[in-house]
Design a protein around this nucleic acid. Structure first.
Length: 871
RNA sequence: CAGGGUGUAGCUCAAGGGUAGAGCACUCGAUUUAGGAUCGAGUGGUUGAGGGUUCGAAUCCCUCCUCCCUUGCCA
């Protein structure tokens, strides 16, 4: 069955040979067996409970290092464990294959993005395969494949029809040298990352997904994501950022129009000292036309870029328009109107009123431009006569004062009262706002999914007919000049309008790559379906039971996926809201960093420890500065290659180490010593099974009776370990599970060969060890299983069950304290009566010595745990 | 300044009121021509600091400190 004859192993006590686990041979062999038997290929099976394990799929950037594979290992442990527990487990893998690095590689080394991407995929697939991860490779997908993105194009057309996709102008970071749009991360100090040219803000027509349509539901449903980490839920809540306030108008003195503002603090209206509009506000643009100084100011603001972080950090600057706004509650009260750089057109109405006493930014602004600061909220313990605002605004709770009809009201009541008044005056109304904005999906890039629309001068925007999908990317593109290659292409964008037949132009924007990752988990359910996915398969497998990935995707990817499920539901594709029932965010893998005397980074293999203990370079022995341990990254060169570990110690060693040292949610420190330690442990287990101290009875031999107490204790250890490891795996405590198994192996190794029943207990222990290790070190475990004389595959064997009767000991060891200090221990039958325990404790020589003959004032007995004698 | 996390052996982590443990590292011994591997034994702790509750605190409460992360600073 397995290519090599199975050999029943009986053990040969006294055998002196010291075999070493042949890692290469075993790992290759068992992987081949699983592959040949298609062990991990699954189909829908209504008779079995399903379990969908998914790790966030990678961008095929080149090759993997050990830092990349921690989450795949965790997912694999879960997949293999659940499989052993009888679940029908879907565990797929694919490639998030569109994206900018492929285009950068094309520019840098003249290789086509597709070739570069597929080459990387081939390398990385082989790397994952050699890690022995139990994927159903039949379901592998690459998002850059037309058979993937054609369905995305169809979804877009349906979204368009449903009003969930639309086009409007928005601001982008424009690199005037590269003639291209930059992502916020590509803007460094206001300059393009590649060209170094100052970035401009430009208005460009862009495609958007109407994620705000579901803002309330996306926020509400977070409460029910009870298997998500609390902090991710919090981050999403903050990102959606619901706020309750009022939208209302300030009339402009001497003009027919007015300014609409949004505020969450209408209660502080009597503290208003200015109105400010965004530099992109229509009013600012109108005034700038006749006012060169204002135009220059607006221009200056646009240089800042669109990143929120940059805007936040910048100094608050304003430009007095000379206009006056009339206070909504008092026609005789006017405040100046400014154009201010910290007011964003994209949020609220693009205009605010400033209450310096109640908002730090407004206060900074007021101090800079010498505007009045009127306190209107008195803190609970404050004194109206003396309370004053210094350099810090008061944003806390309190009672309104200096506020006419709002005086004496608590903040919350005053808000409602102010809104009522605004509504009564016809000046405005209460409104709920969200920080969440619609998702801009247009990218002026080649290596992405083409947006399937055609621009016709007569018909406007015309969807590409479904029968013409997919709109394929052209292969013959060049990257020798700046800008979007699709736009430069001589023929690709010229098409006949599907509606009127006249010459028209294809959309040359492509999708943000977050679009592909927003539904790939659905495609995995039926990866070769001619449609986007098979509804029955999706209904069977979804939602993902356990999703595993980095916390860096806590907001965008996860929120976009949640949006996609809702949008697809509305368009009739599916009928469910949440894609990921459980989420786990794993910690990073870290490693020391090394620098040479010039400050250049060094790879770990370029340094060594000299005889004196100093760290020096391998070449030339120059002194090396050892930096702190940081997340493994190519830029700092603190990476450990996967090949190096797998060739030397094998995939199981890498896997076990990635699981063992730290709790999975925390960062893991990769050390050579730790990897060697794991390798020694693997060999220790191998020897325990292949060269046992005591001959093992054959498979299924009856339990000998009686068992020696040492054998009995070892058997209890076996069952306690099964119980504990099971609980640890269920609770994602992989490091504890590993520690338990190590203790089991130590315990079994200590079992004296002479003890009655030792061989039988040792077999129980070795079989349990193999089974418990199987999710973590699957190749080793399969080899052990065979060495133990089994003729079935361990991977097809059910998870072991602990015998409840063996989980408690008959004899317990009590700690005996005198005045809280440990003086002795006492072995006694479990659940002995209190007075029996007390009497036994008081007669212990160590206790008599410690009490110096004084009578016990009190004896505390905690059953089966401790006795404390108080004198 | 805020919010969250963290602090236990040299290192990475257990123990969540009841005997402070594991792995790695280190020391010594055995084995070996030697090294490595292996086996055995051992060193190593005022549980970040201080105070409180308790018969008993790493664990519960209060104060302070360290480092890390998320950023809040979106009206």
């Amino acid at each position: 069955m397995f290519g090599a004859p199975l050999r029943a192993h009986t053990g040969e006590p006294g055998r002196k040979s010291m075999s070493r686990y042949n890692v290469r041979e075993n790992e290759d062999r068992w992987r081949a067996v699983w592959a040949e038997r298609r062990t991990f290929a699954v189909t829908e099976d209504p008779a079995k409970p399903k379990y969908y394990v998914l790790e966030m799929f990678p961008y095929p950037s080149g090759r993997l290092h050990v830092g990349h594979v921690r989450n795949y290992t965790m997912g694999d442990v879960l997949a293999r464990y659940k499989r052993a527990r009888g679940f029908n487990v879907l565990h797929p893998m694919g490639w998030d294959a569109f994206g900018l690095p492929a285009e950068n590689a094309a520019i840098a080394s003249k290789v086509h993005p597709a070739a570069w991407t597929y080459d990387n995929i081939a390398v990385m697939r082989e790397q994952l395969r050699r890690m022995g991860i139990a994927y159903d490779w039949d379901r592998e997908i690459a998002t850059c494949h037309p058979e993937y993105y054609r369905h995305e194009q169809k979804m877009f057309l349906d979204f368009l029809e449903a009003g969930l996709a639309y086009r409007r102008e928005s601001w982008v970071n424009w690199d005037p040298v590269e003639n291209t749009v930059l992502a916020n991360e590509q803007v460094i100090d206001g300059k393009g990352w590649r060209s170094g040219a100052p970035v401009e803000r430009r208005r460009l027509s862009q495609w958007f997904f109407r994620i705000t349509e579901f803002a309330d539901d996306l926020l509400d449903a977070i409460k029910r994501l009870d298997r998500w980490p609390e902090r991710v839920r919090l981050m999403q809540e903050n990102w959606i950022g619901r706020s309750e306030g009022a939208r209302f108008r300030f009339r402009l003195a001497g003009r027919p129009d007015d300014i609409e503002v949004y505020s969450t603090r209408p209660d502080t209206l009597f503290g208003a000292s200015f109105v400010a509009v965004s530099p992109n506000h229509p009013l600012a643009e109108e005034l700038a036309r006749d006012n060169p100084a204002l135009a220059a100011f607006v221009q200056e603001c646009s240089r800042l870029g669109t990143s929120e972080a940059v805007i936040e950090a910048a100094e608050k600057l304003g430009f007095d328009t000379g206009l006056k706004a009339v206070h909504p509650f008092d026609p005789d009260w006017q405040v100046p109107v400014y154009v201010a750089n910290f007011v964003l057109m994209e949020y609220g109405t693009g205009a605010i009123f400033g209450c310096p006493s109640g908002d730090q930014r407004d206060l900074d602004f007021a101090r800079k431009y010498d505007l009045p600061v009127i306190p209107v909220v008195l803190p609970p313990e404050g004194d109206a006569a003396t309370f004053a605002i210094g350099e810090e605004a008061y944003t806390g709770d309190g009672t309104l004062y200096n506020s006419r009809f709002l005086d004496g009201l608590p903040v919350e009541t005053a808000k409602r009262r102010a809104i009522e008044e605004l509504e009564r005056l016809g000046a405005g109304a209460g409104e709920v706002q969200f920080r969440l904005r619609d998702w801009g999906v247009s990218r002026q890039r080649y290596w992405g999914c083409p947006i399937p629309v055609i621009h016709c001068t007569d018909c406007g925007i015309v969807p590409v007919p479904e029968s013409d999908l997919p709109v394929r990317l052209p292969d013959d593109v060049t990257f020798d000049r700046p800008g979007n290659p699709l736009d430069h292409h001589p023929t690709w964008k010229h098409v006949a309008c599907p509606s009127c037949g006249k010459p028209a132009r294809r959309e040359t924007d492509t999708f943000d790559t977050f679009v592909e990752s927003s539904w790939y988990f659905l495609r995995f359910c039926s990866a070769r379906d001619s449609g986007a996915f098979d509804r029955k398969a999706v209904d069977y497998w979804m939602p993902v039971d356990q999703y595993i990935g980095g916390v860096e995707h806590a907001v965008l990817h996860l929120l976009y996926s949640r949006f996609f499920m809702r949008a697809l539901s509305r368009c009739g594709y599916v009928d469910m809201g949440e894609p990921f029932a459980g989420l786990f965010t794993q910690g990073m893998v870290c490693h020391e960093t090394y620098r040479d005397p010039e400050g250049g980074w060094l790879f770990p293999e370029e340094v060594r420890r000299s005889d004196g203990g100093a760290v020096v370079t391998v070449e030339g022995g120059r002194p090396v500065t050892v930096g702190r341990s940081e997340k493994m990254s190519k830029s700092r060169k603190n990476v450990v290659g996967l090949e190096a570990i797998v060739e030397g110690y094998g995939a199981d060693t890498a896997r076990l180490f990635l699981l063992s040292d730290s709790p999975p949610e925390r960062d893991l420190e990769w050390t050579d010593g730790g990897a060697e330690g794991v390798w020694r442990f693997i060999n220790r287990v191998w020897r325990l099974v292949t060269e046992p101290e005591t001959a093992l009875p054959p498979v299924g031999a009856p339990r000998p009776d009686p068992l020696d107490p040492a054998a009995d204790a070892a058997l209890r250890l076996v069952h306690k370990t099964i119980q504990a490891v099971t609980e640890d795996l269920e609770g994602f405590r992989f490091n504890k599970a590993v520690a338990r198994i190590r203790e089991l192996v130590n315990g079994l190794a200590d079992l004296p060969a002479s003890a009655a029943g030792a061989g039988w207990v040792l077999r129980q222990g070795c079989e349990a060890a193999a089974q418990l290790l199987a999710p973590m070190t699957p190749h080793l475990a399969e080899a052990l299983w065979q060495e133990l004389g089994r003729d079935t595959l361990l991977v097809d064997t059910a998870w072991p069950e602990a015998d409840a009767a063996l989980l408690v000991d008959d004899v317990v060891t009590l700690a005996v304290q005198v005045n809280g200090k440990l003086r002795a221990t006492l072995d006694i039958a479990r659940d002995s009566a209190r007075d029996v325990v007390e009497a036994a404790a008081l007669t212990l020589p160590a206790v008599i010595r410690a009490t110096e003959g004084k009578p016990a004032r009190k004896v505390v007995v905690v059953p089966n745990r401790i006795v404390n004698v108080v004198v």
